[in-house]
Amino acid sequence: SEEELEEFAKEVLRRGITIIVNGIRITEVEIFVKVLREILEKR
Rank of each mutant, 00 (worst) to 15 (best):
Glu3Asp: 13
Ile26Cys: 12
Glu38Tyr: 06
Glu28Phe: 07
Arg15Gly: 09
Thr27Val: 11
Val29Phe: 10
Ile17Gln: 06
Glu11Val: 04
Arg14Leu: 10
Lys42Asp: 10
Ile26Thr: 04
Glu4Tyr: 14
Arg43Tyr: 14
Ile19His: 00
Phe32Ser: 02
Ile24Arg: 07
Phe8Tyr: 11
Arg43Leu: 15
Lys42Ser: 13
Arg37Ile: 11
Leu40Trp: 11
Thr18Leu: 12
Ile24Ala: 06
Lys34Pro: 01
Glu38Ser: 02
Phe32Met: 14
Glu2Cys: 15
Gly16Glu: 06
Ala9Trp: 15
Ile20Phe: 03
Leu36Lys: 00
Leu5Trp: 11
Ile20Trp: 01
Ile39Phe: 13
Asn22Ile: 08
Glu2Met: 14
Glu7Met: 08
Glu6Arg: 15
Val21Ile: 14
Ser1Pro: 10
Leu5Tyr: 05
Thr18Trp: 06
Val33Arg: 01
Glu6Ala: 11
Glu41Asn: 13
Glu2Tyr: 15
Asn22Val: 07
Lys34Thr: 06
Glu38Thr: 06
Val35Cys: 08
Ile24Met: 09
Glu3Ser: 13
Ala9Val: 12
Ile24Gln: 10
Thr18Arg: 10
Val33Pro: 00
Leu36Tyr: 00
Glu11Leu: 00
Lys10Phe: 03
Glu7Leu: 05
Arg37Trp: 10
Glu28Gly: 06
Leu5Lys: 04
Ile17Leu: 09
Phe32Lys: 02
Val33His: 02
Lys42Ile: 11
Ser1Asp: 07
Ile20Gln: 04
Arg43Met: 15
Ser1Leu: 14
Ile24Trp: 04
Ile26Trp: 05
Glu6Asp: 05
Val21Cys: 14
Glu6Phe: 15
Arg14Ser: 13
Ala9Cys: 15
Ser1Met: 15
Ile31Lys: 07
Lys42Trp: 06
Ile19Val: 10
Val35Arg: 01
Ile39Leu: 14
Glu30His: 10
Val35Ala: 09
Glu30Lys: 07
Glu2Pro: 13
Glu38Arg: 00
Glu3Arg: 14
Ile17His: 07
Glu11Phe: 00
Arg15Gln: 11
Asn22Met: 06
Thr18Phe: 05
Thr18Glu: 14
Ile39Gly: 06
Lys34Leu: 02
Leu36Gln: 01
Leu40Thr: 04
Ile17Gly: 12
Thr27Gly: 06
Ile26Gly: 01
Val21Lys: 03
Glu2Lys: 13
Glu2Asn: 13
Leu5Gly: 01
Arg15Leu: 13
Glu7Tyr: 09
Val21Gly: 04
Arg25Leu: 14
Glu3Thr: 13
Val35Leu: 13
Gly16Phe: 15
Thr27Arg: 08
Val29His: 05
Glu2Gln: 13
Arg25Gly: 06
Ala9Phe: 15
Val35Asp: 01
Val33Trp: 03
Glu28Arg: 06
Phe32Pro: 00
Ile17Cys: 15
Glu28Asp: 14
Leu13Gly: 02
Leu36Asn: 00
Ile19Pro: 02
Leu5Cys: 15
Gly23Arg: 05
Leu5Ser: 01
Gly23Ser: 06
Ala9Met: 13
Glu2His: 12
Lys10Trp: 04
Leu40Asp: 01
Asn22Phe: 01
Leu40Pro: 03
Glu3Gly: 13
Val12Leu: 14
Ile20His: 07
Val35Gln: 02
Val12Tyr: 00
Glu11His: 00
Glu30Thr: 05
Arg14Tyr: 01
Arg14Cys: 10
Arg43Glu: 11
Glu30Trp: 05
Arg37Leu: 14
Ile24His: 08
Lys42His: 11
Arg43Pro: 08
Lys10Ser: 02
Val29Tyr: 10
Arg15Glu: 08
Arg14His: 08
Glu3His: 14
Arg14Lys: 13
Thr18Met: 09
Phe8Glu: 02
Glu41Lys: 10
Leu13Phe: 08
Glu3Lys: 14
Asn22Tyr: 02
Thr27Asn: 09
Arg15Trp: 08
Lys34Arg: 07
Arg43Ile: 15
Glu28Leu: 13
Val35Pro: 00
Lys10Ala: 04
Glu6Tyr: 15
Thr18Ser: 11
Glu28Tyr: 09
Lys34Glu: 11
Glu2Gly: 11
Thr18Ile: 15
Phe32Tyr: 06
Gly16Trp: 14
Phe32Asp: 01
Glu38His: 04
Ile31Leu: 07
Lys42Pro: 06
Glu30Leu: 09
Glu28Trp: 08
Glu38Phe: 10
Arg43His: 13
Leu40Gln: 04
Glu2Thr: 11
Arg15Thr: 12
Val21Asp: 00
Thr18Lys: 13
Val21Ala: 08
Ile26His: 03
Arg43Ala: 14
Ile19Ser: 03
Arg43Asp: 09
Ile20Asp: 03
Ser1Arg: 11
Ile39Ala: 07
Glu3Tyr: 14
Ile24Val: 12
Lys10Asp: 04
Arg14Val: 06
Ile20Arg: 05
Val21Asn: 02
Arg14Ile: 11
Glu4Ala: 14
Ile17Met: 07
Val33Gly: 01
Ile24Tyr: 01
Val29Gly: 02
Val33Ser: 03
Lys42Met: 10
Phe8Ile: 08
Asn22Pro: 03
Val29Pro: 08
Lys42Asn: 10
Ser1Glu: 07
Ile17Phe: 06
Arg43Lys: 13
Gly23Phe: 10
Val21Phe: 09
Glu4Phe: 14
Leu36Pro: 01
Val21Ser: 03
Lys34Ala: 09
Arg37Asn: 05
Leu5Pro: 00
Arg37Phe: 07
Arg25Ser: 10
Arg14Thr: 08
Thr27Trp: 10
Ser1Trp: 15
Leu40Met: 10
Phe32Val: 07
Leu5Gln: 02
Arg25Lys: 11
Val29Gln: 03
Ile20Tyr: 02
Ile19Gly: 00
Arg37Gly: 05
Glu3Ala: 14
Leu13Lys: 01
Thr27Lys: 06
Lys10Cys: 13
Lys34Met: 04
Val21Met: 10
Thr27Met: 08
Ile17Asp: 07
Glu30Tyr: 03
Ile39Asp: 02
Ser1His: 11
Phe8Lys: 01
Ile24Gly: 03
Val35Tyr: 09
Glu11Asn: 05
Glu11Cys: 13
Arg14Glu: 10
Asn22Ala: 08
Thr18Cys: 12
Ile26Glu: 03
Gly16Gln: 07
Val12Met: 14
Glu11Ile: 05
Leu5Thr: 01
Ile24Asp: 05
Glu28Pro: 04
Arg25Gln: 12
Glu4Pro: 07
Leu40Lys: 02
Glu6Leu: 15
Arg25Cys: 09
Arg25His: 13
Glu7Ala: 13
Glu11Gln: 06
Lys42Leu: 09
Ile17Ser: 05
Gly16Thr: 04
Phe32Asn: 03
Glu6Trp: 15
Asn22Arg: 10
Glu38Asp: 12
Arg37Gln: 09
Glu28Ala: 11
Ile26Val: 09
Val35His: 07
Arg15Tyr: 07
Lys42Tyr: 03
Glu11Lys: 08
Ile19Leu: 07
Val29Met: 07
Gly16His: 12
Arg25Tyr: 13
Val21Gln: 05
Ala9Pro: 04
Glu7Trp: 13
Asn22Gly: 09
Arg14Gly: 13
Glu41Cys: 15
Glu11Arg: 06
Ile39Asn: 02
Leu36Arg: 00
Glu38Lys: 06
Ile31Asn: 09
Phe32Gly: 00
Asn22Leu: 04
Glu38Trp: 05
Gly23Ile: 12
Ile17Pro: 00
Arg37Cys: 12
Gly16Ile: 15
Val29Arg: 01
Ile39Arg: 04
Asn22Cys: 12
Glu2Leu: 15
Leu36Asp: 03
Val35Ser: 02
Leu40Ile: 10
Phe8Thr: 01
Leu36Ile: 09
Phe8Cys: 15
Ser1Cys: 15
Lys10Asn: 05
Glu4Cys: 15
Arg14Asp: 08
Arg43Thr: 09
Leu5Phe: 08
Val21Glu: 01
Asn22Trp: 04
Arg43Cys: 15
Leu40Arg: 02
Glu7Lys: 11
Glu7Arg: 12
Ser1Phe: 15
Lys34Phe: 02
Glu3Asn: 14
Glu7Phe: 07
Glu4His: 12
Leu36Ser: 01
Val21Leu: 14
Arg14Gln: 10
Gly16Asn: 08
Ile31Gln: 15
Lys42Gly: 12
Leu5Glu: 02
Arg15Cys: 15
Arg15Ser: 12
Ile19Ala: 01
Glu41Ser: 09
Lys10Arg: 12
Lys34Ser: 08
Lys34Asp: 09
Ile20Cys: 12
Ile20Thr: 08
Val21Pro: 00
Leu40Phe: 10
Lys10Ile: 04
Glu41Asp: 10
Asn22Ser: 07
Leu36Trp: 02
Ile17Lys: 05
Ile39Thr: 02
Glu7His: 09
Ile20Met: 07
Val35Glu: 03
Leu13Glu: 02
Phe8Pro: 03
Leu13Thr: 01
Lys10Met: 05
Val12His: 02
Glu38Leu: 04
Ile31Trp: 12
Glu6Gln: 11
Val29Ala: 06
Leu40Val: 05
Thr18Val: 15
Val29Leu: 14
Gly23Met: 11
Ile19Asn: 00
Thr27His: 11
Leu36Ala: 00
Ser1Ile: 14
Gly23Cys: 14
Lys34His: 04
Asn22Asp: 10
Leu5Met: 06
Ile26Pro: 04
Leu13Val: 06
Glu11Tyr: 00
Glu41Gly: 12
Gly23Tyr: 08
Ile39Lys: 02
Glu41Tyr: 01
Arg43Asn: 10
Lys34Gly: 06
Leu5Ile: 08
Leu13Arg: 01
Val21Arg: 04
Val29Cys: 14
Ile31His: 13
Phe32Thr: 02
Val35Ile: 15
Ser1Gln: 08
